[in-house]
Design a protein around this nucleic acid. Structure first.
Lengths: 229, 229
DNA sequence: CTGCTTTCGCTACGAGTCGTAGCGTAACTG
DNA sequence: CAGTTACGCTACGACTCGTAGCGAAAGCAG
């Protein structure tokens, strides 16, 4: 899972393996010399999460991480070119715990996901890293892409799954146009993720069951106290 | 508008002016020695915004700002204790341009505000600063408080104004409980601000008129393609 | 076992930033 | 005028960065 330049390649991005000198190698292990220690990878990522929780984004330095992971600073730089990329990998796995429960109603499913996301955002590692990563991403398109691929986009599955389950239950009408469905998924995802993040990380208010209910009302039903004429 | 420790006071926060040695001074100018240059204040804040747009949050250093503003680094530190506080003041004024238009319908008002906010978030100074500030705020409660007071809370007036206008027009029912109304304002604010920020700064997608219409639909009406039984 | 290759830990380096201190000078007040 | 405060400038120790060079260790092919 690390940023993983292939062993002996300097740092060239090489996103397209098209004209590779060793073609059709597949996923074969191209091991010739001493292999990289997998234990070091784990130690580094763990140390990164711990340091993130203790020192925050600004206090996190490559030197600290290396020391805490009992690894030379050089080793760290051999695998991750910068703090940004390291933190992406260290934080991405935290989001894997989110699941779509299928509790029998769209409302219950949404509330459950919101609660899970709120719990995740309450963790200090997540708080310290997430917004800082997003901030760096606004200046570095490549980093933003990595963030989307590793953290953001994988969570859209939750919206897709919940939506599909609701359609199976007959709560939502089946898709007509795939294009429209995709845009709808995007907008719902931005709304749920953005709102919960803003509530927790910016406003600094807790996510209570009552708040979740109100928010779900706003999503599912009409605007509160709207006079329907 | 700067962080403004009163001239000769070291740095004590003194949020409550209750037991002030010189009481009832009002807004009088307590000038004794050489007054601080207002031109320097403006030059520093302008330089901060420019450097923010050019170099981003990470590239912004106190030294750069001082040089660009043609001011000694010492002068800068005399007024703002850190980069965070400086940027709060430099960015806060950008948000003053947001206005509640009163276009005759709740839907039109919401769409107009979303469009304004989207334009603001498209500016490089805003992009570079906003999320980074929020990120720092998650670790420093005092900074978060300053951010809220200077940037976030003042914009809640937009929700209040739009809501009041809609109530006058009869689109929304009048308030019953002030407590409930306050929570409702909070949740609407978090939803609009959070969603637009997530769309622009995280997903990196533009805010089009079409997207704004869909988002307003989600807010005002029921969930898209919801089967009402 | 013997080379070959690559990673490892360690040390050291120049460059850059941080926030502060000291100094003499400038500006404004009574 | 004296008193007070802000200003520009220089210099400082502490820290982080990312890189380079070294000898040693670990795995693989013959």
């Amino acid at each position: 899972m690390p940023a993983a330049q292939p062993p002996a390649s300097p740092d060239v991005a090489a996103p397209e393996p098209a004209d590779d000198p060793a073609p059709a190698a597949g996923a074969a292990a191209r091991a010739k010399g001493r292999p990289r220690s997998a234990a070091a990878d784990r130690a580094i990522l763990d140390a990164t999460r711990e340091a993130l929780a203790e020192l925050g984004w600004g206090g996190l330095t490559m030197g600290h991480v290396a020391t805490r992971a009992k690894v030379a600073k050089t080793t760290l730089y051999r695998r991750w070119p910068s703090k940004n990329e390291l933190v992406v990998d260290a934080v991405a796995s935290l989001f894997d715990d989110l699941v779509m429960p299928d509790l029998g109603s769209l409302r219950a499913d949404i509330e459950a996901v919101v609660a899970q996301f709120a719990d995740l955002l309450a963790r200090p590692e997540t708080q310290a890293a997430l917004l800082a990563l997003f901030a760096e991403g606004t200046r570095d398109p490549q980093l933003r892409r990595r963030i989307r691929e590793a953290i953001v986009d994988p969570q859209k599955r939750l919206v897709r799954q919940g939506r599909a389950a609701a359609q199976t239950r007959g709560e939502l009408a089946p898709d007509t146009d795939p294009e429209t469905a995709c845009e709808e998924i995007d907008i719902i995802f931005d709304t749920i993720a953005g709102t919960v993040e803003h509530r927790v990380l910016v406003s600094g208010e807790p996510i209570t069951a009552d708040w979740t209910r109100r928010f779900t009302n706003l999503l599912l039903g009409p605007f509160p106290s709207l006079v329907t004429d």
